[in-house]
Design a protein around this nucleic acid. Structure first.
Length: 671
DNA sequence: CTAGGGTTAG
């Protein structure tokens, strides 16, 4: 029987047979040992062991085991609470190891209150208790409490240090983690694989290219040998610090890393975050095709995010189907990812349906639903979700408020009062400190409804110096409401803060062109060019047959360029017949008059929409995504196109969705 | 008692 043990490693069912056999032979210790060497034991193994322990009066061991089962994601917290009650019943409330297990359990499945209650009720505490509490507090974001506990530990070991280090990283405190590490080195603490993994992660959190290089060198020089854990962390660090070439190189070389799914996910996210989402998608396809690594919850969540960014609806839906088939819908992040994918791909119905089907929601689930409504400019619906949250007693977080405040752009102007009230009650009623994001949202709402004086007042009252995001919000409102006088002042502030950011100049230039001041608009653009700054080119794309068909203005790279241009010419003529007049004011002033129409009529969005109309079958909407704001002429044009073709056009730009149908747009012509 | 990749907003 012992001979079979080596084969049991990657076969949990064989392992289970062995475990039960050992138990029958009266050798629980062998079964126990085998069990703990398995990376993924099956649940019946837990049960078998627990009953075995229960039979030989090892209640404490049994309870400890049960906590591990209860901490597993799929079991939720239900079982753990029952076991806690059971432990109290059998008089184990002062048992040190059971209480330590409880701390671990409530860290993973419970609330801070439960955790603290156990901790404070304990008479005897050891290093394990205190280290557990460090992790516990860190898990709930209570960094300072964790540090306090750490300072109290009399005989701190390297595990306590590591727990603190990991916790810092978890809470985005990369710098503190690095300082801590220096302290460890100076104190001659033992530097283990755990320590190094955390240090590398700290660099990933900091996203500083130079520091990441230094630590990278140190870790390699450290000579502790590379382990799969450290290598995976190094690779991930490179993707987070914009060192994609190196990450890619490691990825090709390190086939020894056990869990390939992890590095696949790292590298896919890396491309997504470094502005190459299409590369991320094709890598994902390769991952599936090669079968190198399982597409698990985490990989799926990551790819769903990319699908949302690109509007890859079909693929997103496919991933959702695969999730349903494999049955791991219990993962909250994954569910949230699906909601926001549907939201970003224009399918509000499915986003709502899934939200209602999910057995559990966290704050991100609620926020995702609200965010999706906002993307569709559904202010009232967003507020209904907010009301439901309050009814159910969900505590909003900082993100919720950024969203809810913005929702008042899409409601009636009279509700600005409600919005204002909400803003001022954030701190007092909800205990959430307004940050510059909240001020930006508020300024955006006030500006949207033309309350410029109040918006200015609000900025004057700021408890900190206004940053670029606040001026941007105000400037964009000035564009929307053609308030050039104020806009000019705002532009000055913004240019003073962000003189190197091309988007600043575009924003200012758009302000002038919106009110017909072409010379000013051109002057700003020239200024930008003289500084050697170039704007992100405007780009639009359509997903067709799982491929991205991307267009720049007047580009002729697409294989079907001829068909697209002649199709577009026909569309233009048809639209002109029913009243469309190209509005050349949306073309830069400096362009020669006779070229203006060319510049205008072949904007990237027009090319993409035409391609969609040519390719997408009857009865299905044309879905287009554009990286920046849609111009006014394209907007007018698409309204006509929806009439002459009878098709529904759903276009997502930087402001949200425009749904063109029967000559109207869902944005109400303000965006 | 300490380890890896993921979701919302800007």
């Amino acid at each position: 029987m012992h001979a079979l043990v080596t084969k049991a490693d990657d076969n949990p069912h064989l392992a289970n047979t062995l475990i039960t056999s050992y138990i029958k032979l009266g050798r629980i210790d062998y079964g126990h040992k085998l069990f703990f060497n398995l990376s993924t034991p099956i649940v019946v193994s837990y049960t078998a062991l627990i009953s075995a322990y229960a039979k030989c009066n090892r209640e404490d061991e049994a309870i400890k085991l049960w906590f591990e089962v209860a901490s597993m994601k799929s079991f939720g917290g239900m079982v753990g609470h029952q076991i806690h009650a059971h432990a109290l019943k059998v008089g184990l409330e002062m048992n040190l190891s059971v209480n330590n297990a409880l701390i671990g359990f409530y860290t993973k499945c419970g609330s801070v209150d439960d955790l603290v209650a156990v901790y404070e009720g304990m008479r005897a505490k050891d290093v394990i208790t205190l280290t557990g509490m460090i992790s516990g507090y860190m898990e709930f974001g209570m960094v300072e409490s964790a540090v306090e506990v750490f300072d109290q530990i009399p005989g701190r070991n390297c595990i306590s240090y590591n727990a603190l280090l990991t916790g810092f990283c978890q809470n985005g405190e990369g710098l503190r983690a690095l300082l801590m590490f220096r302290e460890m080195v100076e104190d001659h603490m033992e530097i283990s694989d755990f320590t190094l993994t955390s240090v590398v992660k700290a660099c990933a959190v900091l996203t500083e290219k130079e520091i990441s290089r230094q630590i990278h060198g140190f870790v390699i020089k450290c000579g502790c040998g590379s382990t799969a854990w450290i290598d995976a962390a190094l690779l991930d660090m490179c993707t987070k610090c914009g060192r994609m070439e190196e990450a890619q190189k490691m990825f090709g070389q390190w086939s020894h890393i056990q869990s390939r799914s992890v590095v696949w996910t790292s590298i896919i996210c890396g491309y997504a975050q470094n502005g190459q989402p299409d590369e991320a998608i094709s890598l994902f396809c390769k991952m599936q095709a090669d079968g190198d690594g399982t597409v698990d919850e985490v990989a799926s969540t990551a790819v769903l995010g990319v699908c949302g960014t690109l509007g890859f609806y079909e693929m997103g839906k496919q991933i959702h189907c695969n999730i349903l088939k494999s049955g791991f819908l219990s993962d909250l992040c994954l569910g949230n990812g699906v909601i926001s994918m549907y939201g970003k791909c224009g399918n509000m119905e499915d986003a709502i349906k899934l939200f209602n089907l999910m057995p559990k929601h966290d704050i991100v689930s609620w926020n995702s639903l609200i965010a999706s409504h906002l993307l569709h400019r559904q202010g009232e619906e967003a507020l209904v979700v907010w009301l439901n949250m309050e009814k159910v007693g969900i505590k909003p977080d900082s993100v919720t408020f950024v969203l809810i405040l913005s929702a008042y752009r899409y409601t009636m102007s009279s509700s600005v009062n409600t919005c204002r009230g909400l803003f001022y009650s954030m701190r007092s009623r909800y205990g959430i400190e307004p940050t510059s994001y909240h001020y930006s949202s508020m300024v955006g709402v006030l500006g949207y409804w033309g309350c410029f004086e109040e918006a200015e007042e609000l900025i004057k009252e700021l408890p900190f110096d206004p940053d670029a995001s606040i001026w941007r919000a105000l400037l964009d409102s000035c564009r929307l409401r053609s308030n050039t006088t104020l806009g000019r002042q705002v532009a000055k502030h913004l240019l003073a803060i962000k003189p190197q950011d091309p988007s600043t100049y575009i924003l200012v230039s758009n302000l002038y062109s919106a009110s017909g001041r072409w010379h000013c608009s051109d002057r700003v653009r020239n200024e930008m060019r003289e500084k050697g700054l170039r704007k992100h080119p405007s780009r639009s794309w359509v997903i067709y047959q799982n491929k991205i068909h991307s267009f720049y203005a007047r580009d002729k790279y697409h294989l079907q360029t001829k068909d697209i241009y002649s199709g577009l010419d026909i569309l233009i003529l048809e639209c002109m017949k029913i009243g469309y007049e190209p509005d050349t004011s949306f073309v830069l002033h400096e362009v020669e008059e006779h070229q203006k129409q060319d510049f205008l009529l072949y904007h990237s969005a027009k090319l993409a929409v035409t391609y969609g109309i040519l390719m997408i079958g009857l009865g299905r909407p044309v879905r287009v995504v554009k990286n920046i704001h849609l111009c006014g002429d394209c907007h007018t044009f698409f309204k006509y196109v929806s009439v002459v073709t009878g098709k529904e056009i759903s276009l997502r730009d930087a402001s949200g969705f425009h749904c063109f149908k029967n000559g109207e747009c869902s944005c109400g012509d303000y965006w």
